[in-house]
Every structure is written in C-alpha cells, then in structure tokens.
C-alpha cells in the first residue's frame, strides 16, 4: 500500500467517523433530511465567504458555511412554526438557498477552483496532494487536519454535554422540564453538523458527506438500543464502508466517493437483513420457530 492510499483512507475514515457520529443524533431526532438540507445550503455559505474574502478555504469559509447551516435550520424552524409542513419547509429552504449559491457561483466565481462539480463530488483521490504546510514543515494533507479538527471538536462538545444531548435526543419535553436549554443545544448540535459537513464537503464532496451523515447512523440504529454503543457502532460502520468502498473503487477504477457511499449502503443492507435484534431474516426465523411451536420450551 502506498502512502497516497493511506492518506485517502485516513481522510475517508475521518469523514466517515465524524459524519457518522454526529449523524447518529440526526437519525435519532428524525432530522436526517435536515442534515441533507444543511449539506446543500452550506454551498451558499462557502460562496458568500469566498465573495467577501476572495479566498478559498481557510477559516472564513468554515465560518460562512457554519453560519449558513445554522441559518438553514433556523429558517426551517421558523417556517415550520409559521404553519408550514416540516417536509415542505425543509424542501423550500434548502433548494432556494442552494439555487442562490449556484447562481452566485456561476455569476461571480465561475473561473475559480470552486466549481460546482468540485463542491458536489470533491475528489478524494486528490487529497494526498493538497498538503498543509506550516512554517515550512509538511504536516500531511490539509483535509486530514480540517476533517480531523471538526471531528475532535464534535467529540469534545458531545463529551462535555453528553447527558444533555442524550436527553434532547430522546425526550426533549422532559429535558425542558429539567431546565435544560433545549433550543440552545439544538443549535449547538446544528453548528457541529454544519462544521462537519463543510469539512467533509471540502475534502470528499457532498455525496460522500451526506451518505456518511445518514447511513452509518441508520445502520447502527438497527444494531443496538444504547446511545453510547450506537455512536461507537456508527463510527465502526463508517470506517468499514470507507475501506470497503476504497477497495472496490481501486479494483474497478471508479469514483471513490461514489463507491464508499455504495459500500455504506451495502453494509446497511447487511444489517437490515441480518441484524440479530431486528434484521428481517432473524425475525422471520424467530417467528417461524414460534409458529411451529419449537420456541415453546425456550
């Protein structure tokens, strides 16, 4: 294995872990499509940050994207409270913001490296050649640092407020009666989602970012009832999908991001069919045993 493979795999694993981790909360809170919405509308944030600073990457882009992510959830919430159906609110908001982003991009920034294709697909294969240099020292691919940083931040914040996040995910009404500022934690979590997505976007593209935001969490959700275990499993599933997908992509010489997303779907299908707890096949088998009376003595 060459060093480039290592960097690609490391980046993909970091993306999978960070997205899977924060995505688990989205799955639990029935906000998977909000994650999808954020991942689209951060494009506008990136474009606005670029137009303001005339600079790609860097802290400004992160801030722009994170703010736009927050803005998206805020608008969705407002429309929903104003009487719009939630699914409609999500659909209207992100498509509008995304379209604005695309138009601004092609109007003012069409000849920079930030073309729409890059934003949507990224190309994880180029990760090893975008090296972060600091004081003349090569520190490895930039993507590893941004995605790793976002993941670290997510871990620290989630670790600090684990109980609060847990309560807000499972019983927000009860959390409110305990005096936990549910709304504040909601927005904290959405900030983390935006940061994670934009880090993933920049290095691996939206396809893989959104896939890793939803699929590993959903897979882990099928495998366990405990939040702690679900978070851990989502990371494991994410990394597994990344490795599987990479092998597949190299073997067939196809898009790495696409292959990783497909692999995540494959792992989900396995869990859906064979999960000992709720998989289709074990359940059907148990039902048959009960019906045929074999389970009576068990």
């Amino acid at each position: 294995m060459m060093i480039e493979d290592f960097w690609v795999l490391l980046t993909a694993s970091l993306v999978a872990s960070s997205c899977g981790f924060i995505g688990s909360f989205l799955v639990l809170r029935k906000m998977a499509m909000v994650g999808d919405a954020i991942s689209h509308s951060v494009l506008l944030g990136i474009v606005l940050a670029f137009l303001l600073t005339q600079q790609l990457g860097g802290i400004a882009m992160f801030i722009g994207a994170a703010l736009m992510g927050l803005f998206t959830t805020f608008v969705i919430q407002l429309l929903h409270q104003g009487g719009a159906q939630e699914d409609a609110a999500i659909g209207v908001t992100f498509t509008g913001l995304f379209a604005l982003g695309v138009v601004l991009l092609s109007l003012y920034a069409s000849n920079v490296h930030l073309d729409t294709e890059h934003v949507l697909f990224g190309e994880i294969a180029y990760v090893p050649w975008d090296i972060l240099v600091w004081n003349g020292i090569e520190l490895g691919p930039r993507a590893v640092w941004t995605v790793g940083g976002a993941f670290l931040l997510t871990l620290v914040v989630t670790g600090l407020f684990f109980k609060e996040f847990k309560l807000c995910a499972f019983d927000p009404a009860y959390a409110l009666t305990l005096g936990i500022p549910v709304t504040l934690f909601h927005y904290v979590q959405m900030t983390l989602v935006s940061l994670t997505t934009v880090a993933a976007f920049d290095s691996v593209g939206a396809v893989l970012g959104v896939a890793m935001l939803i699929v590993p969490g959903a897979t882990a959700y099928l495998l366990t009832d405990k939040l702690e275990r679900m978070l851990l499993l989502s990371v494991v599933v994410g990394v597994l999908s990344a490795v599987l997908g990479y092998g597949f992509a190299v073997w067939l010489d196809v898009s790495i991001s696409g292959a990783m997303a497909s692999a995540a779907g494959f792992v989900f299908a396995l869990a859906f069919l064979f999960s000992p707890r709720s998989g289709i096949i074990p359940t059907a088998w148990r039902r048959r045993r009960v019906l045929s009376g074999d389970g009576a003595e068990a």
Binding site: L208, S255, G258, S262, G265
Partner: peptide, 8 residues
C-alpha cells in the same frame, strides 16, 4: 445518498 453514490 446510496442510490446517488451507485449512480456516480
């Protein structure tokens, strides 16, 4: 996402 990934 999975379908789209397969499509890509």
């Amino acid at each position: 996402t999975v379908f789209f990934g397969v499509g890509v």
